[in-house]
Amino acid sequence: MAHGAPTARFTSFTQFYPFYLGEHRNAVCRRLHFIGSLGVIGCVAMAVATGNGWWLPGAVVCGYGFAWVGHLFFEKNRPATFRYPLYSLMGDWVMFKDICIGKIKL
């Protein structure tokens, strides 16, 4: 079950991001998101370095796979991706940045 209001409608990413963080309270879920995002970066780098586009679907599987395992088994909620795909993708990368700079605990 989601932590935030399931009927919320967001008109900006600024409004959405606190909700997104509320959906990622579990440290293991955040860590899995972080690992998945690192995997995305690695897969995209390999695609560029090798010229092999098959790394790109791997980036998608890696990013979403780790995140969804975190939600299913640790956060026990439905990923925000299903309700807010663009804001959720943006949230993944802002949270990744916030973890990297120490604003959010890994």
Rank of each mutant, 00 (worst) to 15 (best):
V28C: 14
V28T: 13
V28K: 14
V28A: 14
V28W: 05
C29K: 07
C29I: 12
C29V: 13
R30I: 07
R30N: 05
R31V: 11
R31G: 10
R31A: 12
R31E: 10
L32M: 01
L32K: 02
L32A: 03
L32G: 01
L32T: 02
H33Q: 12
H33T: 13
H33F: 04
F34A: 08
F34D: 01
F34G: 03
F34S: 09
F34C: 06
F34K: 04
I35M: 05
I35H: 10
I35Q: 09
I35K: 05
G36S: 09
G36W: 04
G36P: 11
G36R: 12
G36N: 12
S37V: 09
S37K: 04
L38A: 09
L38H: 12
L38P: 00
G39N: 03
G39V: 01
G39F: 07
G39M: 03
G39W: 01
V40N: 06
V40A: 04
V40F: 08
V40Q: 09
I41E: 00
I41L: 02
I41H: 02
I41D: 00
I41R: 00
G42L: 07
G42E: 04
G42W: 02
C43M: 11
C43K: 00
C43T: 07
V44D: 00
V44M: 00
V44P: 01
V44F: 04
A45N: 10
A45Y: 15
A45M: 12
A45R: 08
M46D: 09
M46N: 15
M46T: 13
M46W: 07
M46C: 14
A47H: 07
A47I: 14
A47N: 08
A47S: 15
A47E: 06
A47D: 07
V48H: 03
V48T: 05
V48M: 12
V48C: 06
V48S: 06
A49H: 07
A49V: 11
A49L: 10
A49P: 04
A49W: 08
T50N: 05
T50Y: 00
T50I: 10
G51K: 12
G51C: 15
G51Y: 14
N52T: 02
N52C: 11
N52S: 06
N52G: 04
N52L: 08
N52W: 09
N52A: 14
N52M: 02
G53Y: 04
G53T: 14
G53D: 03
G53L: 15
W54M: 15
W54V: 15
W54R: 13
W54N: 15
W55G: 02
W55H: 06
W55K: 05
L56Y: 05
L56K: 00
L56W: 05
L56D: 06
L56N: 08
P57I: 07
P57W: 08
G58R: 05
G58N: 02
G58P: 03
A59T: 12
A59C: 07
A59M: 02
A59L: 07
V60K: 11
V60D: 03
V60I: 15
V60R: 07
V60F: 14
V60S: 09
V60M: 10
V60Q: 11
V61M: 13
V61Q: 03
V61C: 11
V61W: 08
V61A: 13
V61L: 14
C62E: 14
C62T: 15
C62D: 01
C62S: 14
C62K: 04
G63M: 08
G63T: 02
G63H: 04
G63D: 06
G63V: 08
G63I: 13
